[in-house]
Each structure stands twice: as structure tokens, then as C-alpha cells.
Simulated scan of single mutants.
Amino acid sequence: MRVVVTRPAHSGERTARRLAEMGHEAVLLPLSKPIRHIDATRQALSDTRGAIAVTSAEAIRTLRAIGQPLQPHLGRPLFAVGKATADEAKNLGFIHVFTSEGSGTELAELISREWADIPQAPLLYLAGSPRAAGFEARLTGLNIPFQTVECYRMQNIIIEDATLRRLFFDASADAVLLYSHQTAKRFFSLPFLQRHQNLLASTRFLCLSEAIAEAVPPSLHSHVDIANMPDEDSLLALLAAK
């Protein structure tokens, strides 16, 4: 199958390798790129002493960019959504990594269960922008003190019509992988695709969660498949479902 990957370049290249191993043709279409706030992240680490939480691997990559000043903080408990993000944290050198599958809400529940056994200081949430509100809302509901610091911001990439023509007009796409609500909204708002909606008539939209699927236009809902679990293994398994 010819599969369009809408993730940022670093993650998208990893997904493309997995798709190639599965026998699919991967087409990269990153719609945004991270702008890293390295100084603010370094300062936030220096000003805090408790556990760290991340809901995206992009936060771990910002930590990696800090370099040597990160070393004193590698012993702090780190809570991460998803195995891939947790593995990146471990590869970076974090010793005590707790992993939650699913959404930010489930990560907050995990933190609540472990809270009594970790240093009692406000949690440092290294966040991106834009982001879903679920994690912070659930932390508040669980009375877990936290500080949010935006360590990166996703900046939209300008996509030329010629690129989209090559990807969707010159050769049809069998499937598009959608990993976030924001990315899905951006994809379907691209002017070229809005002018040529017929190009998507036979394309499947594989979504990591129901929240992401909500960003798909109603006219294309019959083309949507949602992963059983919000992880890439479940998402890619959908390629073999039909």
C-alpha cells in the first residue's frame, strides 16, 4: 500500500522504516516542525526538583538538546505516555521511567498511583504547544501539584501545491496516518485538498484515537479506522485489516 505519514520528520522517518519492513511504500508529509525552547527547559530543570512528565517524544528530544547540564537530572522520576517516548527517555539516560499507554489522562492516573512514593515536589510537565488539555485537567482533578513549561512549539510547514499534487494527484494514496487532532485538522484544511476533495475518495484515514477521528470531515467518516489502542503498533495493524 502507498501510505502517507503526516508526522514531523524525525518521527516520520522512523515510521517510514517500519512501513518499508511491512512491505508498504511510505510517503512523508510532515505538516509541522518543532521549535525547541532549550534555555527555558534548562532553567525549568534547575528551578525544580521533583518528578518530570512528558506526553510527547519531542519533549525528550528537547531534553537531549540540553546536553551535559541534563546529567544531574537523570535520576529524577520521569513519567511518559507511550513505550516509544519512554524508550527515548531511557536511551537518553533516565533511570526511573514510568510508562502509561493511552492518553494524557491515563498518565495522570498513573502518576496519582505512584505519587506517595516519589519526591513530594510539584511535578514538572514539559509540554508542547499546541496540546490537548486532558493531562493538565486530570492532574488538577487529582490534586497533584504541577508546573507546566512549554519546551517546544510545533510550527506549521508551508506545503506547496506541487508537493500535494505529486502525493495525491499523480499517484493515489491508499492510506493516511493521523497521529494528532491538530495534525488532522491541518491536513484537511490544506487549500489544495479542499479544492480537490475527490482525490481522497478512495483513501483510508487511520487515526490513533477517536479524538483524532473527530477532525476528519463528515463526508469522509466512512473512510476512517481507529486504532484499538493509541499506539503505533495498533495503528499500523489497521493496514492489514482490510
Rank of each mutant, 00 (worst) to 15 (best):
E58I: 06
N198W: 07
R204C: 00
P8F: 02
Q120F: 03
V4H: 01
Q120W: 04
V54E: 00
R186P: 03
P217T: 08
V3D: 01
S172R: 15
L177T: 03
T48R: 03
I35P: 04
F169Y: 15
L78A: 04
G102Q: 05
L178T: 01
A59G: 06
A211F: 08
P218I: 07
L236M: 09
P191G: 12
H196G: 05
N156E: 15
W115V: 00
A59E: 01
R186N: 11
A51W: 00
F79W: 08
A162W: 04
R42P: 05
Q155R: 12
I212T: 07
E101Q: 11
H223A: 13
I38V: 14
A20R: 15
R204G: 00
L238F: 05
R113C: 07
D47Q: 12
F192H: 09
T48C: 05
E150H: 12
G141C: 10
S209C: 14
I158F: 11
Q71Y: 15
T105A: 11
A241K: 11
P77A: 10
R7P: 05
T99F: 10
P30F: 06
N228G: 11
V4L: 04
N91W: 13
S172T: 09
A9Y: 10
A213V: 05
I212D: 01
Y152V: 03
P217A: 09
E21W: 14
